[in-house]
């Protein structure tokens, strides 16, 4: 269990993190979301004891990072922002160094290094110096280092930054595979990632928590939740369709995108309007190219929440 209480960090007159309190239990994957400069990295640095908080406390599995820093650090796997490592070393020498520092020895050391090398596909670059590796490989070396000792607590600052879509998918898979018994905290500004791997999302803006919910619940806050979008063929009459859609009892509002030739109907009080809309379309034989139910747009929720907090 990670417990952060009233965590605050001030740099001079600037308050980077403002009285954050939250807790994370084993089995949870907490995603930190926020615009750049919101305080994500500072918060993570305080969790792992790299930056001391101006005030507030962090305890991890009952241990205080202040009083037992070495014990706490030994149960955490941490991927710092930008995945720094020692550029003049090879990934193999680097992992060997991390294993020694983490006191992995003998059989366990060999098997753990073998396992992370396999999981992160580092085999082809093991003998090259890290400086010469591509961004994706560097990031994976950083991830390998973080999970090498199979830590019960995993904290990762933007784990998929710089990876291509396939690699992103694999890293997300990796996180999901480890999620069942670990405490995992990641930060990201990729919203699909939250949806893909996180069981809980905390949105912070200007150092404060502005939302703390499951990704699904966040999506439901979207004004697009349960909205229906149709797209008409070039010879369809957009204006007539708009007028008719507005008359439906379940529809609160309608938005037209002339360019995409699409109309989005927003439901009144979250009710289901898909059947109403599709019935209407069949009755009037609209030349439909597309008709779909929106589940909600996380990026739109994110924007509205963080912009609200800003103003």
């Amino acid at each position: 269990m990670i417990e952060a209480r009233e965590l605050t960090k001030r740099y001079g007159s600037l308050t980077a993190v403002d009285a954050l309190s939250f807790s994370v239990a084993p089995g949870e994957v907490l995603g930190f979301l926020g615009p750049n400069g919101a305080g994500k990295t500072t918060t993570m640095r305080m969790l792992v004891g790299f930056v001391p908080p101006t005030s507030g406390t962090v305890s991890i599995n009952g241990l205080s990072i202040d009083e037992q820093p070495t014990e706490v650090k030994s149960i955490i796997g941490y991927l710092p922002e930008g995945a720094p490592s020692y550029g003049e070393m090879t990934p193999l020498a680097f992992l060997d160094f991390i294993a020694d520092i983490r006191k992995l020895t003998g059989q366990r050391k060999t098997s753990r290094i073998g396992e992370v090398v396999e999981r992160l596909h580092l085999q082809p670059v093991l003998g090259q110096t890290i400086d010469t590796l591509s961004k994706g490989f560097k990031r994976r070396v950083g991830l390998a280092q973080a999970i090498l000792h199979d830590p019960p607590v995993l904290i990762m600052d933007e784990p998929t930054d710089g990876l291509d879509p396939n690699q992103k998918h694999e890293v997300r898979q990796l996180i999901q595979d480890m999620a069942s018994d670990k405490i995992i905290v990641i930060s990201t500004h990729i919203l699909e990632e939250v949806d893909a791997v996180c069981s809980r999302a905390v949105i912070i803006s200007r150092g404060r928590i502005v939302a703390d919910d499951t990704p699904n619940a966040l999506i439901r806050r979207s004004r697009f939740h349960n909205a229906v979008t149709i797209r008409l063929h070039a010879d369809g009459d957009l204006n007539a369709a708009e007028v008719m859609l507005k008359r439906l009892t379940g529809v609160r509002d309608v938005e037209v995108d002339q360019h995409a030739r699409s109309i989005t109907a927003f439901p009144r009080d979250d009710q289901a309007i898909l059947s109403e809309v599709s019935q209407l379309a069949t009755e009037h034989s609209w030349p439909l190219e597309e008709l779909h139910l929106e589940s909600g747009r996380l990026d739109e929720v994110f924007r509205s929440i963080t912009e609200q907090a800003d103003s």
Partner: peptide, 13 residues
């Protein structure tokens, strides 16, 4: 290079 962040968060004093 930022590797100090790695070093300082490893279990060494």
């Amino acid at each position: 290079t930022g590797s100090i962040e790695l070093l300082m968060t490893l279990p060494v004093t």
